[in-house]
Design a protein around this nucleic acid. Sequence first.
DNA 1: GTCTATAGAAGGATAGAC
DNA 2: GTCTATCCTTCTATAGAC
Lengths: 186, 186
Amino acid sequence: MARTPAPGTRDTILTAAAGLFYEHGVRAVGMAQVVEVAGCGKNLLYRHFPSKASLAAAYLALVRQERDRSCTEALRWAAGPESQLTALVLEIADMVRRPRYRGCAFRNYLTEFPGEDDEPARVAKAYLADTRAEVDRLVAECGGDTLLADRIWLIVNGLYAGPPSQAQVAVDWVTELVGSRTPPPD
Amino acid sequence: MARTPAPGTRDTILTAAAGLFYEHGVRAVGMAQVVEVAGCGKNLLYRHFPSKASLAAAYLALVRQERDRSCTEALRWAAGPESQLTALVLEIADMVRRPRYRGCAFRNYLTEFPGEDDEPARVAKAYLADTRAEVDRLVAECGGDTLLADRIWLIVNGLYAGPPSQAQVAVDWVTELVGSRTPPPD
DNA sequence: GTCTATAGAAGGATAGAC
DNA sequence: GTCTATCCTTCTATAGAC
């Protein structure tokens, strides 16, 4: 046999690309830069990801995977749909407050490539649609109407865009909105 | 005799660039494309705008000029700070509902060029800071606290990002928020 | 020797700037 | 129009592990 292929090469490349793409934007980062940070040759990069679009799609898929895991974990300890809704917003707020937060990766991609319908754009749109659907589901579960769902989605969108100092305002507001739906017993 | 310079050349170029930049993003549009749409020569473009960054800055300055004019017009007929606040949000909502709306030009630029501090970035940041300051001012004028200002800013940010179908929700919500501050006389 | 890795040049297109 | 630089992508050359 010949030289054994390194096992984690794909992950190494993808991790390097993800960091660069998120920090500087997909358009601003060249494939040569990815190769340099990943510490591999161009040949290997193109063997794992046949194009920059496929690499960008894998980057967004990775971010989605991390976010899904993080949200699932956050919702695990919430009792009912009300506290799940609050936990969901709190999870986003925690992300916004992270030191190297640079906006929502999916919204950023759609802003960088407006009107595009390639694979990464579809990944991004799917994430946004699914998240919105989950908000709708949770609101419906706790007896809220579409107005409440629209309002929470408005807050979520503002939370992603706004400064980190606004994060707590969003969390408290959503808590208040869904909390007022369940009048305290007695 | 030398050829007389056309009077509206700068505006023609800037209008063409503005349309392209807003529709496709600044990074995606090349100077050649601007020249093609403007119908002028490249040398003329570089005589008016010595670099792409300066053209982008002029584009954002033009957008700001239009927005300032539009907001001033919207606030003209509003009686007190409460209705001015509502009028401000309604003006943004009208923009969001326009058929070719593609997001906030300033936020889009900052997303396309993260971490940059060139002239267009400064124009964009100044607009956002000024708008936020105006919201703060109006909220303070009608006796609201910083929490109300933060909440309205959250809605405004969500309004810019969200789908046009959310626009009315934002307008109604802000109307309700500032309206509840002025209990009806009698 | 054979296979896979990296490094880097080459191709072709397109960018910004003059 | 031209010039230079850089983009993504492909390919060649070479070194290293089996």
